[in-house]
């Protein structure tokens, strides 16, 4: 699936991945987890990698191997460096009136494995969920 980097597409992206997860035989709880993790990853790309430029594109690939679903999301925006990320504390966020940083935390909690790859101008987040 190739889709423009706009928040108006998030609903369609969620429906697309949920549909595949159900077809792969995931239970409804896992389907919700995968749907939210993909939304968070795409939202981060829209906000941070492309900085709200909706003329840009996000590519989503889905695969199933043995009992694992792989979702790969590719962009060509500003790369994300996981080494610079620190897990936000909700109380600190509240004190500092910050509201970002939760997406990555949720992705890590919801998926079994998360990897970032960087090649030339291409950034990829690979997320695995076990059935």
């Amino acid at each position: 699936m190739r889709i423009s980097a706009s928040t108006s597409e998030l609903e369609r992206i969620r429906a697309f991945v949920a549909d595949h997860a159900r077809r792969f035989g995931f239970n409804e709880e896992d389907v919700q987890d995968i749907r939210l993790a993909v939304d968070e990853a795409c939202t981060n790309i829209i906000k941070h990698a492309y900085q709200w430029r909706d003329d840009k594109e996000i590519q989503i690939r889905i695969g199933m191997r043995d009992s694992e679903m792989l979702v790969s999301i590719i962009d060509e925006g500003v790369p994300f460096n996981p080494k610079n990320y620190s897990i936000p504390s909700t109380q600190d966020q509240l004190d500092q009136k910050k509201r970002s940083g939760y997406g990555i935390l949720l992705i890590r909690k919801l998926m079994d494995k998360v990897e970032y790859r960087n090649k030339k101008s291409r950034n990829e987040i690979r997320m695995i969920k076990k059935r």
């Binding site: 969620r14 939210l36 939304d39 939202t43 509240l94 004190d95 509201r99 949720l106």
Partner: peptide, 15 residues
Amino acid sequence: YISSAGLGVFMAYIE
């Protein structure tokens, strides 16, 4: 459905 963007709104105004 809610994502962290939705939760962020509650965070931003609660104080």
